[in-house]
């Protein structure tokens, strides 16, 4: 393959990664924005989404499409309910003190991960995509003075990967509409601006927190369901995803949803492209150092506003 088609292929893979990452990171960003809680267990909610998708799909038995649709609906709901319970039982009792919630969510991370190891086991398991048509992509080149179209060997994507990108865009638009147009979004934004004033105006702040924590975890679980036909479900898959979402949320500016989505596209695309051409370990080192330096020298993120 020539360089051009190769680059297109790499950016398509990058776009799939970017959309999954955007979903997951916007969950993390929402939780941090409204609650000021850094949720270290976020990666495990993503892993739970993937594992539950496998479980639901295997319960549904023969029908691949039915299993997948059920997983798409059920996994985020179950994970959201688990997260809301964790918020009520643990985080609320810590009064959302930043350092103690981090330690508690580290604890949650190990509890979820190890319980999954005990029940689901150490194997990586695949879920069959509901549809997976191979789509070849044409490429154009100048030859003999004219534009010629041809179909390079290996340049293709699948209908499922395109579906992932569209689903992520749709869900993110939905979240944006919810935050800006709905009453629930209004309550969340009011809580985000000033917790005490919101409480004084009769907003049930604690219930808002539980719902936000649930929605954040549900978004991670949804990302997990979407990725599992491409990558297999494994009990350790959460940590890498967590670090990547941290990177995205920090580069995009903590708590800014638009910044998060832009950063996810940036990081996902460049991760996809860089790891095709260079060593993936080197790409990860550069990304982690970049985050550390952004936090040190530009703590508001590349696009975020300065907080307090």
């Amino acid at each position: 393959m020539d360089f051009g088609p190769y680059l297109l292929l790499a950016s398509l893979e990058g776009a799939v990664l970017a959309s999954v990452l955007a979903l997951m990171a916007s969950g993390l960003s929402l939780v941090f924005g409204v609650m000021r809680v850094v949720n270290v267990a976020h990666g495990e909610f993503y892993m739970l989404g993937a594992v539950l998708a496998w479980w639901v799909a295997s319960l549904a038995g023969g029908s691949v499409v039915l299993g997948f649709v059920l997983a798409l609906v059920l996994a985020p709901l179950i994970v959201g309910a688990i997260a809301a319970t964790a918020d009520i039982v643990v985080l609320r009792r810590l009064s959302y003190d930043p350092e103690r919630t981090i330690v508690a969510t580290i604890g949650l991370l190990y509890i979820i991960q190890q319980l999954t190891l005990m029940s689901y086991g150490p194997e990586a398991r695949p879920v069959v995509a509901p549809f997976n048509t191979r789509l070849a992509i044409p490429w154009f080149e100048f030859a003999d003075g004219g534009l010629r179209m041809y179909w390079p060997w290996g340049l293709s994507t699948t209908s499922y990967k395109l579906f992932v990108i569209f689903a992520a865009v749709a869900v993110l638009l939905g979240i944006r509409v919810m935050m800006t147009r709905s009453r629930a979004g209004l309550l969340m934004r009011a809580t985000q601006q000033d917790r005490e004033i919101a409480q004084a105006f009769g907003i049930p702040v604690e219930r808002v927190y539980a719902v936000v924590f649930g929605i954040g975890a549900g978004l991670a679980a949804l990302a997990g369901v979407l990725i599992v036909p491409i990558q297999q479900a494994h009990y350790l898959m959460g940590l890498d995803a967590l670090l990547l979402s941290f990177i995205v949320v920090i580069i995009g500016g903590l708590g800014s949803l638009a910044g998060t989505v832009i950063a996810a596209v940036l990081i996902g695309m460049s991760e996809g492209i860089i790891s095709v051409f260079f060593s993936p370990t080197l790409a990860k080192i550069i990304a982690t150092l970049l985050v550390a330096f952004v936090l040190v020298f530009r703590p508001q993120g590349l696009m975020g506003k300065r907080v307090r």
Binding site: I102, S279, T281, L282, T288, L289, V291, V296, P299
Partner: peptide, 28 residues
């Protein structure tokens, strides 16, 4: 020198990221 320019949650994440970079460098 680098991490102490930040405080609180940012300090935790900066130290986490530096440690991750060291871990990945050992693998690299």
């Amino acid at each position: 020198l680098l991490a102490l320019r930040t405080a609180g949650v940012a300090f935790m994440i900066v130290t986490l990221m530096f440690a991750q970079a060291v871990y990945l460098a050992i693998l690299l």
